[in-house]
Write a protein that binds this DNA or RNA. Structure first.
Lengths: 340, 340
DNA sequence: TGCTGGCACTCGCACGGACAGAGTGCCAAG
DNA sequence: CTTGGCACTCTGTCCGTGCGAGTGCCAGCA
């Protein structure tokens, strides 16, 4: 029905205008800026229907309309085409990310890049340990009774942990221990490392059993720790841009939520490299995020998501552009990490 | 002279009142809240002098006075006694920091703790590599032609770096290389590592020379990289508290400067564990910080500063309290890291 | 010489009314 | 189903007023 179609067209126009101007959009302005082929009066009728259906709302009686969360949702799902990145943007991605020397560096650059491309807050997750495998384990004696265990994963992540053995450690046992651990765990997925432990304990020479037990449990703890999943955040300055307009009151709760990394990690939980996930306003479970949108995607190869990255911004954001940017960056990062 | 003394007393009272109330303070309010023993009229005369000398200023003609940067400076230098921490605060420090499992964890907790204690933005620097020594070097083969070099310092810091050798690497050479590197560099200060390289190259077996060269230069690069000095930042949400009152316009430039870690690192450059450094407003070279104050101190043993930590906040801050908090936390962190 | 009370003066700010502008809803006609 | 017209309802802004806080100055007093 041409009827419904035009109504959707009106919604699209409202979203586009509102995102770019930040002013509630009225029927007259709409008919001028877009070629809808009908008069403002007709648009008003459509708007009344859209409002009744909950897609738009007016801040006060004599203002224009503003999209609701539901309106943005419809826009994202049905009205927006993926906006291809400009050449300059593609260039920027390469220029920014090439030349990174290690994982920390890659992710640091990624977060700055994303923040710059989207002008929003960017969030990048370290490759999750639970989806990584052991590349190498290193044991270094720190003091007579303490060892430092260094875990290097196949994703290039390096985790350290001090293990207190409660008893004096013979320095000569350390290389032995190292060899033993590596032969047992090298190439093993971290999620499966637990299963190897009993076996390892059995086959280990008696004088090493105590050490192996201590170190293994430290290794497994590393996995369980909520802190195991690290996050890099950047571009928070972008929150201070249109704050008064975009966020009710202050950006404070949002900043707090971002620092409370757990909150973001939970959002990041279900990422997948093949689809860009968009959570709009109230769709975010966390209260501080109810006036924000979260656009995320997984990075890594298609078989295996290493982690996620995304952006956080006001619900009034350029969804097509941001989705494209997030996806493009994730792809590039995925390639980059696959190489190393 | 009793004269000058009272004038200073007036300045102290102004600073204290202004910090706690955030309102320009007038002569009448001052005489009521403080026991200066003179009438408002007299205080007015003193204030006129203080203003002439540049210690205070009035936002507009019928408002009270507000301290200038110079006024805060005098206050910090001569008028403030070190405020001892409350028992609760001491407790909080211990409770917060004990139980940290590794360096990353310690610094993460530290930054949260500082932010919470001072209600300002907290900044903690990783132990600088240039002041650390090598505890262990680990070499792991990543692909046929690439190695990952992992540096573990005596401060518990772990740095990684991928080294491209441009030529196929014999897996059997890796353990050899590892032993060689460790015997050469273990215990050596990173600043002195460069000097060891020529010697090492000479004594190394011929078939390893190429590898040693590649790895050594990567090691030295790690030192030079500006990114070598990492920073943890927390409590940025505190900036959004009284923003409009404390910072002209927005907090945006400040947030940008904080993300631009170099800026903060430069400020942190001259830290020293024995004295708390306070930079007030315009004293900060960087433009974005001219309406902010920076309170910092080094942590580590008295002989050796490992790094610095501090807070950033509006010039209108509780200097004695914040200085005490920063110093106490630095001491505790210093002890903690000395142990490991 | 220094302190004090008194007084006139200056501003910023909050309050309230008037006004213009934007936008709507409804209705009757095409 | 669309359109032009019209009355209505808001909000944001501008202006004038009054109030209160705070100052600077001056003359008197110890």
């Amino acid at each position: 029905m041409a009827h419904d179609e035009r109504r959707l067209e009106v919604l699209r126009a409202i979203v586009q205008d509102y995102v770019s101007t930040n002013d509630p959009v009225g029927s007259k302005a709409l008919s001028e800026r877009h070629d809808l082929g009908v008069s403002p009066a007709t648009i008003r009728n459509d708007m009344a229907v859209l409002e009744e259906q909950g897609y738009i709302t007016q801040p006060h009686t004599s203002a224009g309309r503003v999209p609701t969360d539901k309106g943005y949702r419809l826009f994202v799902d049905r009205l927006s085409a993926v906006k291809p990145l400009s050449v300059a943007e593609r260039r920027a991605i390469e220029r920014f990310l090439d030349g990174a020397v290690d994982l920390h560096d890659v992710l640091g650059r990624t977060v700055r890049l994303l923040a710059q491309l989207t002008r929003q807050v960017a969030v990048v997750q370290y490759p999750t340990l639970s989806r990584s495998a052991v590349r190498h384990l290193e044991v270094v004696q720190v003091s007579t009774a303490r060892l430092m265990l260094v875990l290097i994963t196949d994703t290039g992540r390096v985790e350290q942990r001090v293990v207190d053995c409660h008893t004096e450690v013979d320095p000569d046992a350390v290389p032995e221990l190292r060899t033993l651990l590596n032969s047992a765990f090298s190439g093993v997925k971290l999620t499966e490392a637990g299963g190897k432990v009993p076996d390892l304990l059995e086959t280990a020479p008696t004088h090493l059993r105590g050490l192996v037990a201590a170190v293994s449990s430290a290794l497994l703890e590393t996995l369980v720790e909520p802190s195991e999943d690290r996050l890099v955040i950047g571009g928070t300055a972008n929150l201070a841009r249109g704050s008064a307009l975009d966020f009710p009151g202050t950006v404070r709760p949002l900043l707090e939520a971002l620092e409370e990394q757990v909150v973001v990690l939970r959002l990041m939980g279900e990422v997948d490299p093949s689809t860009v996930l968009v959570r709009i306003g109230e769709e975010n479970a966390h209260e501080a995020l109810t006036s924000a949108s979260f656009v995320s995607v997984g990075y890594g190869s298609s078989e295996r998501a290493l982690g996620g990255l995304g952006i956080v911004g006001p619900t009034r954001m350029d969804y097509p552009g941001n989705m494209a940017a997030v996806r493009a960056v994730a792809r590039y990062v995925g390639q980059l990490l696959a190489e190393s």
